[in-house]
Design a binder for these strands. Structure first.
Lengths: 235, 235
DNA sequence: GGAATGTTTCGGCCGTGGCCGAAGTGTTAT
DNA sequence: ATAACACTTCGGCCACGGCCGAAACATTCC
């Protein structure tokens, strides 16, 4: 058995990235950025659970590895996830984490809010996200094959009526990606479509953020709008 | 600014999983299992680059977290990834890793072989995997929307002719998922479809494993078969 | 200007966790 | 039976990396 020479090259950098996410403070930072918003260093320090100095160090490492990006604004520095791909990788890890060994994690009321409706980077997730994806597919507006989707022409009209225009944007970003829902364990809508739906619901004030959380609350207007437009009811 | 009480709960277990992948030895272990085969503890020790005792410890941790599974066979113990989801999460991390800061990683000839054709858990990846996905879509056998796909009826016939039967299997596994190709940075075919294509190509001896690697070499028969059946040519 | 706030850098402490040698368990071979 | 092999457990060493206090740097406010 030959024993010299390093065997796998690609494993090394995999380990570097994973190790970066593998620290509790850094994982908290990344989790709190999962809703796509940009947060200041001190807000992140609060979320991470360690001091500002320590957080600063973590942020430097995450930036160095190109997982997060920073914009200066006055005396604040805003950090955000660098791309949807990063969010997707994190969500994929969370999906693995929630299974794990059989020991049940205690679930609090805060957790329940997250399961009901939340943002995942820039789109909707939780029961709300799933319900919307289901509604679009069952009305033949979308063909959704377990892990991705294609808009039908009726779907394009439907979205247009709903106030979403997917055409103009010249971005390279895909129209319809899917993302495995961490709590429901089924795919919800991501990509430009997912992001537009999310934005539109905020614009219509159908949903609003719950303070200091990725969780969303569905407003009275949202409840009736969702029923009338999508025919769905979130418990 | 309130400073007590632990903020994010979900981050904790995320960190645990990530930390597990964040050790070089363990990352090497996982990488070497990425082709879907089951390897013995000593083979994994060799791949991981550390002693057998240490490897044993790592394997215990990975098992505990339900990332890998073990089957006893005589005096050997075979370890394998526990599910395609695990493989997908790892591949997602690799995709992030390959970007990173601008410093180019030196690419050897071994790397080139991986880029050309390799297995990703139980399906094909690299230029070969991408070419097949492209061929199927451009011949209207598949609607592939950037991150997932649906087989058309002509696609079903095509696959049937090619010797693949997707019906009988009663597994819950999705027919057509996609997986972001680490080297090509575009989606290739996974799911039952991806797995069947891969198996069939091995059966036809169109591809064969390159020793001690996830890389595949394309045989003479494979070269002509791919040209005639799929109309593709891998450089 | 000086004070207040936001953020990073430096230095040193300390614990977690990876590592190996040695020894123990289980299986196959002769 | 004895030996060889495959793998795991135990014990102790050691270093990497996370943590904070103190201090420096940056920006805004008055």
């Amino acid at each position: 058995m030959i024993a010299s020479m390093t065997p796998v090259v690609s494993g090394i950098t995999l380990a570097e990235i994973a190790a970066l996410m593998g620290d509790v403070a850094r994982a908290n930072i990344l989790s709190s950025l999962m809703d796509g918003r940009a947060l200041t260093a001190s807000e992140l320090a609060w979320h991470s659970g360690v001091s500002a100095q320590t957080t600063s160090g973590h942020l430097a490492k995450l930036s160095e590895a190109n997982l997060i990006a920073m914009t200066k604004q006055g005396r604040h520095r805003y950090y955000r996830l660098v791309s949807p791909e990063v969010a997707q990788a994190i969500e994929a890890m969370m999906a693995l984490a929630s299974f794990g060994p059989k020991r049940h994690r205690p679930v609090g009321p805060k957790d329940e809010a997250l399961r009901k409706a939340r943002t995942c980077y820039d789109h909707l997730a939780g029961r709300l996200g799933i319900a919307i994806a289901d509604a679009l597919t069952s009305q033949d507006h979308l063909v959704l094959s377990e892990s991705a989707g294609v808009l039908t022409s009726s779907g394009q009209r439907f979205l247009c009526d709903f106030g979403i225009d997917l055409e103009p944007e010249n971005s390279k970003r895909a129209v319809c990606k899917t993302c495995l829902d961490w709590s429901e364990r089924r795919p919800h809508l991501a990509g430009r479509l997912g992001a537009s739906l999310c934005t539109r619901m905020f614009d219509l004030a159908w949903v609003e953020r719950i303070k200091d959380s990725r969780a969303l609350s569905i407003t009275k207007a949202g409840r009736s709008g969702l029923r009338e437009t999508f025919g769905i009811e979130i418990d």
